[in-house]
Design a binder for these strands. Sequence first.
DNA 1: CGATATTCATTCGTATACAAATGGATTTTG
DNA 2: CAAAATCCATTTGTATACGAATGAATATCG
Lengths: 154, 154
Amino acid sequence: MQNSKIKPVTAADRTDGPEATYVLDVQVGFLLRRAAQRHLAIFFEHLPDMTSTQFAALAKLCEVGRISQNELGRRIAMDAATVKGVVDRLRARGFAETKKDPEDQRRLLVSPTGDGQMAFENYRGAAVKITRETLAPLNEDESEALLKLLSKLG
Amino acid sequence: MQNSKIKPVTAADRTDGPEATYVLDVQVGFLLRRAAQRHLAIFFEHLPDMTSTQFAALAKLCEVGRISQNELGRRIAMDAATVKGVVDRLRARGFAETKKDPEDQRRLLVSPTGDGQMAFENYRGAAVKITRETLAPLNEDESEALLKLLSKLG
DNA sequence: CGATATTCATTCGTATACAAATGGATTTTG
DNA sequence: CAAAATCCATTTGTATACGAATGAATATCG
């Protein structure tokens, strides 16, 4: 039996009226951060050799082959300053290489090395597992729904 | 009319078989990062004075009053190392204060200052707007569903 | 009671993340 | 064509994030 003295949370709690409450644990921003956090933890567990970000960049590089650094950033939703660091680290690991675009002196062309492509192939299975484990609390329909909603939000 | 030569993405594309493809743009991790990113951009637009993280900590502090630094971190899903930096910055802005727990010399008790509470009240409306704008691409039902799914995922 | 385990806060190192500013290269436009 | 606008990469500065290690304080347990 429910205690009738406990005031349930209603739509009114989400307005910005003067006596509105603000429950952090229910805000999209908080929930997004928490979910991303859990995902990263799972990622690290299965693939400690590489960060999620680096893997994303490598995956995109293997998908498109050769691309300018800025364009790569755009495709994987990364700031120019951020993508520079990521590419630097991929390069340091021998997974990517860069050279100036002869057709446009502004551009820095980035491509995956053979090692980078092999690494991607080797890690892809783990990445799939990571995705699966991240979505494990949800059933098939819920997973579909979540991906669709997140896509709309992006 | 659809071009019948374009192979649609099916469930098979999400398996880890030998010739499986890995489409980055459809992975939960990627979508979570993108959604969080957009949320942070909206946050910055409406509330450039404070980061989302700092606001979350302040909100929790105003909710619970006084709490040890580690416990605060636990409640807002923040690493001990991370929460230290956040509390330091809140303190530097005069929004929080700390003192050693006389009952347990290990603990550092954190509480919101008067200024901190006022700031929270002042910013709460903006925070509500931020949440609303983040969810703007979704209708009421979809928003509900997203929050529920994200909660399950956390 | 006393050894062991746990908790707490801090520090260090590394990796995102992004705003803002800069300088060089290319494109647009008047 | 030349000035203005845009694009590209880089740098700087600040703020999360977290693993790992450390030392101090408390709790647990034999």
